[in-house]
Design a protein around this nucleic acid. Structure first.
Lengths: 238, 238
DNA sequence: TCAAAAGTGTTATCATTACACCCATGG
DNA sequence: CCATGGGTGTAATGATAACACTTTTGA
């Protein structure tokens, strides 16, 4: 049953860039293998067409769950990609979304039609369909920017984590060799948004303290700091 | 001549939030008066439908020029608004763009069909069509965030400006009473991206030095600082 | 007792804030 | 010579960076 309009319209899709961590706090991204043309068999970001009666964000969450089983997560809008020619089927405009997940809380379920779904390390990516490599680059840039003013670690790490894990995560997201341990710790602890919840057990070295993120405290401090920043006015990081 | 598709498609539009300054460095936004239903006669952001053979950004620039005469400017994508129900004509998804202009370099020309085009102070806005008030709120939030890490003043102010004008701009964008003059100046000058280009003349007080923004210097420093920030790693402003 | 990783003390330097003060101009 | 904004000196405080050191565990 066809739909007819006076002027031509692009198709509207969503794509989701979902980041997680492997067991060494290295950043990974969730991809699916396409089972239809174009780009059949190639890896791509999960996504699909927006229905007429859902918000764009709902479409992103729905497609992500249908294709990967990952659900109950917070997504944020990343950017809208719509250059003519980005899709060989015709004009397709795609709103990209971006999410951080704790992999143990968001297990991947192969979709009903047995399409493959996998986590890929960012330095071992397969070739991607469409302009998905560009979308992924934009998402990585956003993540690097975000890490600087929001404690993203807490969405990615398990509930209890050590400061070394948190540091490894920062090193991985920022693509750095090694941050200074002393200063990293001072900085993080000074923020006063972590709670001690015990120690590691059974490790062949001094056991690390385990921490949990205290969200209430963070929200309160974030509000105060926000007002402070406003008061100070400028702070060009250039 | 109708266009037919197998599945229904939303219409795709663009909207432009263009900020400028009045003669006292207070923030203003460029609006047009709608000449068609829906919302005929009401004020709205400039914008319109995306053509099939242009990028979304090109559509934004084209519509802005057609409707307001403002052209040759840099726009950046702001956000995509697509809730069902945001347009009474049916499902319409709009990609919003955001720009800062120096009003003297970008004069407004009434469109051919004599629609009204005007700058409005942000605290004296008329009622806006569609969800354009929401789009404007998002743009203001983006501007407040942007002002903190990029020297936006230089896109908004005339080529030669005084430090007091720059300070007034910051106070206006951030919605603050008064920043500390001493510290504002120290901070701005320490960045070392301004060049002295003379003095005011004919004012009934000590004439202020006039400055110009040195873009080359800024770009160089921005790169260096960027690397520094990476090296430092974390810098949660919370 | 050793390796491995966790965790701490300290100092020099720099940035930020707050407040009071002086300067140049036209009327 | 005064009103008006432009422009400066400075000291106390706090943040940051750099580096070397101590501690706790299992094997």
């Amino acid at each position: 049953m066809p739909y007819t309009y006076d002027y031509p319209r692009p198709a509207l899709t969503v794509d989701c860039v979902v980041f997680g961590l492997d067991d060494q706090q290295r950043l990974q991204v969730l991809l699916i293998q396409r089972d239809n043309d174009p780009f059949q068999g190639q890896w791509a970001l999960p996504g699909g067409f927006v229905d007429m009666d859902e918000t764009i964000e709902q479409a992103a969450l729905r497609e992500l769950e249908e294709e990967t089983g990952v659900k109950d997560l917070f997504v944020e809008q990343l950017y809208t990609f719509g250059n003519p020619g980005r899709d060989p089927r015709g004009r397709v405009v795609s709103v990209a979304y971006f999410a951080l997940v704790n992999r143990s809380r968001h297990p991947v379920k192969a979709a009903s039609d047995a399409r493959k779904v996998e986590w890929f390390a960012l330095n071992q990516l397969p070739q991607l369909a469409f302009d998905h490599d560009e979308i992924l680059q934009v998402a990585r840039a956003r993540l690097r920017a975000k890490v600087r003013y929001q404690p993203i670690g807490f969405e990615l790490l398990p509930e209890h984590f050590t400061l070394s894990q948190l540091q490894q995560l920062y090193e991985s997201v920022l693509g750095l060799e090694e941050l200074n341990k002393r200063n990293f710790r001072t900085r993080i602890l000074k923020m006063d948004i972590l709670e001690e919840v015990g120690k590691q057990e059974g490790v062949a070295h001094r056991p690390a303290k385990l921490y949990r993120f205290n969200k209430e405290k963070y929200d309160r401090l974030a509000r105060e700091k926000h007002e402070d920043l406003l008061r100070r006015g400028v702070d060009f990081e250039i």
